[in-house]
């Protein structure tokens, strides 16, 4: 159950996408997301599909892993599709009962929306699969650095450090949660059966120890950081400087082509 959580998981491989600068990747992902929403018709969305699949393939991350991410959100996906099915009343009526009718327009809309969500998930997973959590936060810190000039001097660094720590501790917390679940199961706790209310109640013996151990861990971590003279971002230099490379140029060219393609197809059709 908990092992299905793959967010923030890095997949090690050598590819153009892996080599890209995290700042470029973050910006391009945002561009991609915007453009996926900008796609208005079938043709531009199809073009977006092809482009996303192209990015997935050159990232050399197994397609299986992307599909696994999809499994986690299939409820949201199904829900959106069903809602959209009834949302439109254009086109030929396919089914009609009571006060609702499903039209070809509705089906088209449902597929369109579902496809958009799938593309969003895929493209954002490319970012997390190909970028280590550390370089991801480095990228965010660097992108947010202009905020320093409007009086948020240390805030950017603190924010980035918080994100690094949060990402770093996801696997640790999962492991801890599993341990506590086993310990409570050994005391006869029933986590699999029962009504919704009973199951939510069954989480209390897991959440409380988990919360307590997180607080304990936070204190320990703070102490360990202070022992290593951590004093915030002031005057800190980096071991790895972020630099742009040829792969970033390719990425920018690619996104330029992609942008033109989407907008062009939107205008033409």
């Amino acid at each position: 159950m908990l092992k299905d959580i793959t967010f923030g998981q890095y997949y090690d491989a050598t590819s153009v996408v892996h080599k890209c600068d995290p700042r470029v990747k973050i910006l391009l992902m945002i561009a991609f997301i915007v453009l996926i929403f900008v796609s208005q018709n079938m043709f531009s969305l199809a073009f977006a599909c092809v482009s996303v699949i192209f990015v997935l393939l050159i990232s050399r991350v197994p397609i299986k892993l992307f599909l696994k991410n999809l499994k986690a959100i299939w409820v949201v996906l199904a829900f959106t599709a069903v809602i959209n099915l009834f949302y439109s009343n254009t086109g030929k009526v396919l089914v009609s009962f009571w006060i609702v009718e499903i039209t070809t327009g509705g089906v088209y809309r449902a597929v369109f929306m579902a496809l958009r969500i799938i593309l969003l998930i895929f493209i954002s997973s490319v970012l997390t699969y190909t970028t280590t959590p550390n370089s991801l936060t480095d990228g965010i810190e660097s992108l947010l650095s202009p905020l320093k000039y409007i009086g948020l001097k240390n805030a950017v660094h603190i924010f980035a450090m918080m994100m690094t720590i949060a990402l770093r501790f996801i696997p640790t917390l999962i492991e801890e949660a599993e341990k506590i679940m086993n310990a409570q199961k050994a005391r006869g706790a029933d986590l699999e059966n029962g009504s919704l209310v009973e199951r939510v109640k069954a989480l209390i013996p897991i959440l409380i120890p988990l919360l307590i151990s997180s607080v304990r861990r936070a204190y320990e971590l703070a102490e360990a950081m202070e022992c290593r003279c951590y004093n915030g971002g002031v005057g800190k230099t980096r071991m790895k400087q972020l630099t742009l490379s040829v792969s970033d140029l390719y990425a920018i060219i690619f996104i330029a082509v992609f942008t033109c393609g989407i907008i062009g197809l939107n205008i033409i059709f």
Binding site: K179, I180, N182, A183, Q184, K185, A186, R187, G188, I204, P205, I208, P209, I212, S213
Partner: peptide, 17 residues
């Protein structure tokens, strides 16, 4: 079976709630 075979984990005090 869990009430017939009890299992006390490492650092069991972390399961108190």
């Amino acid at each position: 079976i869990r009430s017939k075979v009890g299992l006390v984990f490492q650092y069991p005090e972390y399961q108190l709630f």
